[in-house]
Amino acid sequence: MVNPVLFWIIAAITVIPAFSLLFARKAVHVAMSIVLVMVGLAAAYITLGAPFLGMVQIVVYTGAVMMLFLFVLMLVGVDQREDLKETIKGQRWIGLFTAAGLGAFLVSVVGRVTVAVSDTPVQGDPDVVAVLLFEKYVLVIEVLGFLLITAAVGALVLTHTPRLKPRRTQLEVQRDRVLAGADPVNKPMPGVYARHNALDVPALDPEGQPIDHSVSRVLKIRNQTQEGVEFRAALEDPSRKEGDR
């Protein structure tokens, strides 16, 4: 028998978040709610004597499947808000009525039957489940393995975008750059020829003049650069001797 308190807690943390499926506007909120539902279901499995399945539920659903959903949501844009206004005529009310009717009907039917509960509850521990899986249901496991491989390959194929043009070689990329008027060589790195290697210090050209564009644009906007003038002054100081550092 099951502890009623535990049941009601499980019922609460499954049904209430599940309603977010119908009312939440943001898909991320829905996904997080479903994670909660999955955890609740895992708890229900453990309560019902299926600890292995409960753990698998947590690992697979909350850990893998729902995270996969979140990844996809990231890909397609978290901000996609959905207009809840119904566009198909009658869809909302017929759908709600049918779904609610189905639920009510099932509840009423199931509520009316009484099934004798076994006095010897089995405990679905991993060793018990493993023996059954790899003895009685070994063929099914094999088939499921094929199914998973096929699904993985299928997902790869579906998300694969074929290259329409041949890949551009480095030579072509460089040629285009030079033709567009870019520097044939790299930009000078900041801090080169500076007194101390730092990003905020412009590089010096061979004549000792600072090169402005060697400093990051961001630092300039933030006014976090140094002019390098003081280094030039020091450079021009006659008292300075070679090897004085």
Binding site: Q91, I94, T98, L102, V109
Partner: peptide, 23 residues
């Protein structure tokens, strides 16, 4: 009408009818 959700609704209505008949 090409609307997947309409099809889903039709399926569900059919399912409900089947369950009603079976039960």
């Amino acid at each position: 009408n090409g609307q997947v959700r309409s099809y889903a609704l039709t399926m569900l209505v059919g399912l409900v009818i089947v369950i009603l008949v079976v039960v």
